[in-house]
Design a binder for these strands. Structure first.
Lengths: 343, 343
DNA sequence: GCCACGTTGTCAACCGGTTGCCACCGGGCT
DNA sequence: AGCCCGGTGGCAACCGGTTGACAACGTGGC
């Protein structure tokens, strides 16, 4: 009766196929599969068995059309190149998988304009968007945020849900550590001007240094990359600072390597610290002192909030406290040598 | 007449909205937007203007339903944690964007079973799949490959398109370098048994070492991670080898750090080399000698092939030559010290 | 024995596009 | 004037699910 089971590329089964096999109507199949209780247990069993036999997988597109539920989330990043995003991606990926969502990842190439274009383009395909390390202006983001669920990571914007670090907490730990080492003058190698965390860090430094009898200098940064860090060394050395806090680990590593290359002792002549604790921070010599951010966790929590926003009452923003930062002391910071060079 | 332009979250415009504004029928809009020439230039202009005004973005789901063209690709990875995938992701992302496709990234967690489950699940959502560093058995993959376009990266399978490295070329460069340094006995710290490249590398070593008057020993590896590399040191030291080739940079770095910690001179007592040239390979002390793979390029090419498979004649596999590997000599390899330890 | 009611499954419309088919239109030809 | 023709645009069906309305059915109570 039934044809031979062939391994031909047969098209994926639809609910119509399942319905035929189970001898019910397609709508009954639909209800059996996602309205538990609506259908008698017996019929439901029959349908599930049929679905199983046909290896039926629901077509997300077809479902999305009438319901609007796409079960897809987007993670938008400024630059996939940067190792920081690793943790974010992993966390978001895990979080999405746990909630049954599919994750799509897009890059805005550090451009606010591309960011908006992308936003508009993917809008119809996703139920919500995690905007990480976004650089664009605030207004369009606010607009989007009340057309579609959005969660910001590493940026705060009134009225928009966000997952942000406890910047002052992290900065305080770092300053305390440097102070304890004996540093009084520290330079801050800043990141992109449009970066929210960059602003927050500088603000925290300005606020927290004086009470500790410390002085901070700001060095405008170029790109938040290793190259950007390396090229900043020159300007660093013009300052009376004995320690540098870099915007991120990438810049810190670039700075550190450049310093070594120019035979500037780290931490003897210059202590260097970064932010994020990316992969690679512990590999340098000396290993980099940094303020670790639980980025994987942040990614997961961002997705969690996003899902809450999507599935919960759309009116209220999920309350989330800033995530804690943790100072990881390694070997790139230490007491300044009184004389010069290292022993 | 028209209401005030409000910033209310109004739902995205559909072709019906555009049609109404342009005073044509929805089907005309559809044709104007993607059948160039089918519609008079004048009408087309009118429609484009209307679409512009309404900020119309086509709904990919609605389009996918009747046409089957989803304009979406999947990149499936064994483990997002591994820095190698960085390049792959970037390349694939760029390639997909260039071809107008959206990329979704999924992880199979190093499990062949999860891999298949995932494949089935996303099948309906994507036009094609890039399977990178896949671990599953061959048969199901072959099955899938002729139901849906698939491109393998770092794995060859008859009848399935793939992007693979020129393993013998890379291995030969590395062996030549080690030979020139004076090494005759080298150990290969192997990776996952299910990994295709792992097998190829070992095969290449076995084939290429004897003609160079070199001996290779295989050390079964545990996990292809830094921890896996570190724990292998013990077994390495039992061998009469003066150099180790690790399955990948992660293992090599783990091994190198463990060696340093145990005061085993690198490269004096033990030369260490890896594969992939991941971010971080140049950060260690000594910096890691490695066989660089243009992974970003490979990712882009994989997507390119995939798109060719999707859009071209489905019968023929795109012809692609293996990508070249390039030895990057750094400081973790060198002549074995005749005495012991370093000077 | 009849009716009210709760349960179970079907019908049909709909989501937002695409496309085969056809009707209409105006112009050029005989 | 009548006819044919190519170009243009509309109608309606369809993709694969979902869901409100409703019919059919069985049950219990009076």
């Amino acid at each position: 009766m039934t044809g031979p089971v062939s391994d031909e590329p047969r098209p994926p089964a639809t609910i119509y196929d399942v319905a035929r096999l189970a001898q019910v109507s397609p709508s009954t199949v639909s209800r059996a599969l996602n309205k538990p209780g609506r259908i008698s247990a017996q019929t439901e069993r029959k349908i599930r068995a049929a679905a199983e036999r046909l290896e039926f997988e629901i077509n997300p597109m077809a479902r999305a059309l009438p319901t609007g539920r796409r079960m897809t989330l987007a993670l938008m990043l400024a630059d996939i190149t940067n190792p920081v995003v690793f943790g974010l991606i992993r966390g978001a990926e895990r979080g999405a998988a746990a909630a049954g969502y599919t994750l799509i990842i897009t890059e805005s190439q550090e451009s606010g304009e591309a960011e908006l274009r992308m936003l508009r383009k993917i809008q119809a395909s996703v139920d919500g968007i995690v905007l990480a390390t976004t650089r664009g202006p605030a207004e369009p983001i606010r607009q989007f945020a009340h057309a579609k669920p959005i969660v910001l990571v590493n940026r705060a914007e009134p009225g928009v849900a966000s997952i942000i670090p406890d910047v002052p907490g992290g900065v305080a730990q770092l300053l305390d550590h440097l102070r304890a080492c004996g540093h009084a003058n520290v330079a801050y190698l800043s990141g992109p001007a449009a970066s929210w965390v960059n602003g927050e860090r500088w603000a925290a430094l300005v606020r927290l240094a004086p009470p500790r009898a410390m002085h901070v200098f700001q060095i405008p940064g170029r790109a938040p990359t290793m190259a950007g860090g390396a090229e900043a060394l020159e300007r660093v050395m013009l300052l009376p600072a004995t320690a540098v806090i870099a915007f991120n680990d990438l810049m810190a590593i670039g700075l550190l390597r450049q310093a070594r290359q120019e035979d500037i002792a780290v931490p003897g002549r210059l202590s260097i610290a970064g932010f994020d604790n990316i992969f690679g921070a512990e590999l340098t010599t000396p290993a980099l002192t940094t303020v670790a951010a639980p980025l994987e966790d942040a990614g997961a929590r961002a997705v969690e909030s996003l899902v809450a926003l999507i599935e919960g009452s759309p009116a209220r923003l999920p309350e989330v406290s800033p995530f804690e930062l943790r100072l990881v002391v390694r070997d790139s910071t230490g007491p300044p040598a009184v004389g010069q060079g290292e022993g």
